[in-house]
Nucleic acid binder design. Sequence first.
DNA 1: TTTAATTGTTACGGTAAGTGTAACAATTAT
DNA 2: ATAATTGTTACACTTACCGTAACAATTAAA
Lengths: 141, 141
Amino acid sequence: MSASTKLSNSVKALCYLADSKKPCNSIEISEKTGINASKLRKLLSLLCKNQIVQSNKGAFGGFSLNKNTDEILLQEIYCAIEDRKAFDLHSSLENKNNSFYNSEINKYFLDLFENIQVDIEKKMRKITLKEILKKTRTYKR
Amino acid sequence: MSASTKLSNSVKALCYLADSKKPCNSIEISEKTGINASKLRKLLSLLCKNQIVQSNKGAFGGFSLNKNTDEILLQEIYCAIEDRKAFDLHSSLENKNNSFYNSEINKYFLDLFENIQVDIEKKMRKITLKEILKKTRTYKR
DNA sequence: TTTAATTGTTACGGTAAGTGTAACAATTAT
DNA sequence: ATAATTGTTACACTTACCGTAACAATTAAA
């Protein structure tokens, strides 16, 4: 799954959980969102480790939100599911040749991509799940 | 090549051309930058189509810059070599299931990623090759 | 205590994408 | 003519990704 697909899939699952009063298992979420149940469990277990959702194992277990929707930031979700730096902005330092044209320009791009990364995260820190729910429902209801 | 690698490789080649007084062929640039000559020709031919460099076929041909270094924007370079939207920020609309949880949330992310894209390009439009040369040489000279 | 359901994790085969290289037609200066 | 060079295509190789399956661990309920 690409970074962006992971993110949107996670948000889909979280939106479904936000709607539901009771805990939901991965199969139920899968049926409603179209996302593969195994894939969902992988994503949700990551969100669990970051205290965004709560999981209950065993019969009649399932997932539920662990915070209010206005306390869940898009940036948190992103960081929970993605270990790499956001959106693959890492310059792969591939060329063995370590002339000026590699070392210094690589440094330059690592720095640039880091800055872009910071901007993106800043933007995502301003977005809560509550807002996403509200925005996506303007069309629906 | 990832988007970021393409970009940094392109800039490496352009920096080399900026240094050189005479046109340079792909083999010479390859030797100095460590980038495969065939790969270089692919990138440089794209930069050619966008009037960033000039190419001369035939014996004693080669590549040279087609603009002053302060007229070459990083954003131009990026757009020349990359047809996809920058840095893979497209949300792949993969799930067939077109419930609310797909259609509206997909719309939301397409929009968000588009905004991020605009920010990144805005940032890259402010950076010229001249500046990159200056910055990367602070360390060298 | 047994049973059934569910998470969390690992494994795996198939498919797509990226990489490096080679090859060669088209072109052009000498 | 000849040699050199770009521009493009092709190809094999590797790597990454995807979807799914499988199953141990766990737990509520009967």
